[in-house]
Amino acid sequence: MKKDIATPARTKEILAKHNFHLKKSLGQNFLIDLNILNGIVDASGFTEKDGVIEIGPGIGALTEQLAKKAKKVVAFEIDDRLIPVLEDTLSPYSNIEIIHEDVLKADVQSILASSFNDVEHIHVVANLPYYVTTPILMKLLEERLPLKSITVMIQAEVAERIAAVPSTKEYGSLSIAAQYFSEAKKKLHVPASVFVPQPRVDSAVLKLTIRERPLVSVKEEAWFFQVFHACFANRRKTIMNNLVHNLVGKEKKSLAEEALHRADIDPMRRGETLSIEEFAALSDELYDLRN
C-alpha cells in the first residue's frame, strides 16, 4: 500500500504526475496533515457501519481516511480534471463512489437512497471550499436529508458565526438557520499552514448534529426564515426599523408594533439580542396578524 495521500511529498508527487494545476476559482486548498485529518474523522464520530458523504474530495486525502473507517463513502467532485486523479489515488479502496456533479445541483436525496441502502447512519464529512460553504450547508439542512451529522472544515470566522449565541457580534441569521436544524459545536482550530497552497485565513472544524425536530416549532417555516433575515438586514437598526424597512413596509408599521407587543419584545432591541425562541414567537404573531 502506498503512503497516505495527506503528506507534503505525496501531494506534490500526485500533482506532478497528473500535471494538475490548482484553480483558485474552485477554492482548491489541499490538506497535507494527517493529524488534522484524523481529528476530523474522530470529531465526526461515524462508525464502520455508517455511510459518509464527502463534498470536494480534491486528490482524495480525506476520502482515503474516511474509506478506512466507514462502510461506504460517496464523494461529490465538480472538477472534471480531478476525476482521473481520484480514480488513481483511491484505486486501493473498493468502498468509494465518486460522483462527478455539483452537489448544489444534485438530487442528493435520491443518491442517498440508492447508494446507502445498507448502512446504519449517514454522515457528511468534508473540507468545504470557502466560497460555497453557506449554500452547501443550507442545502444539506433545508432538504431534510436523513443525516445524523455534518462535520466540515470551513473558514474559522464562518464556524464562529454558525456556533454563535445571542448578544455576541458573531450571532446572526446564519447562526439561527443552522441551529434551528442542528446543534452546532466547534471542534478544532486548523492553521493555514496545513494546506497547499496556504489560504489567507485559518480554518475550523465544525460539527452539526442534526436534531430530530427543529429547535422551535413555528406556524410557517419559510416565513420564520424571512422574519429573522429581515431583522438582521441592518445590524445597527432596531428590530422595529428592520421589520418596517425589510419586511412589512411603512404602511403596515402598526402590524409590526402589534406583533412585537404580543411577543413581549421591546421594539428598540436589535436583532442580535433575540433568542431563536423569541424570533419564533415574533414570526408566529406576525403570521397571525398578516393573515
Rank of each mutant, 00 (worst) to 15 (best):
M1E: 14
K2W: 13
K2P: 14
K3M: 09
I5Q: 12
A9K: 14
A9I: 12
T11W: 03
K12H: 13
E13N: 12
I14C: 12
K24T: 04
S25G: 09
G27Q: 07
Q28R: 03
F30W: 08
F30S: 12
D33I: 07
D33N: 15
L34E: 13
L34Q: 14
L34T: 09
N35Y: 03
G45L: 05
F46P: 05
T47I: 00
T47K: 04
D50P: 06
G51L: 12
G51F: 04
G51A: 12
G51R: 12
I53P: 05
I55L: 14
G58S: 14
I59G: 10
L62I: 07
L62R: 08
Q65H: 13
K68M: 14
A70G: 13
K71M: 15
K72D: 13
V74H: 08
V85L: 08
D88C: 10
P92H: 08
S94E: 12
I99K: 13
E101V: 01
E101M: 04
E101Q: 15
D102E: 08
D102I: 03
V103H: 09
K105F: 01
K105T: 09
A106N: 14
A106K: 13
D107G: 13
S115D: 10
S115A: 10
E120L: 11
H121A: 13
V125S: 07
Y131I: 05
T134L: 12
I136N: 10
I136Y: 06
K139E: 13
L141T: 08
E143S: 06
R144C: 00
R144D: 06
L145K: 03
K148H: 11
T151V: 04
V152F: 08
A159I: 04
E160C: 10
A164S: 04
A164W: 02
P166R: 04
E170Q: 15
Y171T: 02
Y171E: 03
A178R: 04
Q179L: 07
F181P: 00
S182Y: 01
S182P: 03
S182N: 01
E183V: 11
A184N: 00
A184T: 00
K185D: 06
K186F: 00
K187H: 09
H189N: 11
V190F: 01
F195A: 06
F195D: 11
V196F: 11
L208G: 11
L208F: 10
R211F: 00
R211D: 02
P214M: 07
V218S: 09
E220I: 00
E221I: 01
E221F: 01
A222I: 08
W223N: 11
W223V: 07
V227D: 09
V227L: 06
V227P: 05
F228R: 12
R235C: 05
K237L: 04
I239L: 12
M240R: 14
N241H: 13
L243E: 03
L243C: 01
V244A: 12
H245N: 15
N246E: 02
G249H: 04
E251I: 01
K253E: 13
A256G: 08
L260R: 13
H261R: 15
R262Q: 15
D264T: 08
D266S: 10
D266Y: 03
G271S: 08
E272D: 15
T273I: 10
S275C: 00
E277P: 02
L282W: 09
S283G: 09
S283A: 14
E285D: 02
L286K: 06
D288N: 05
L289Q: 07
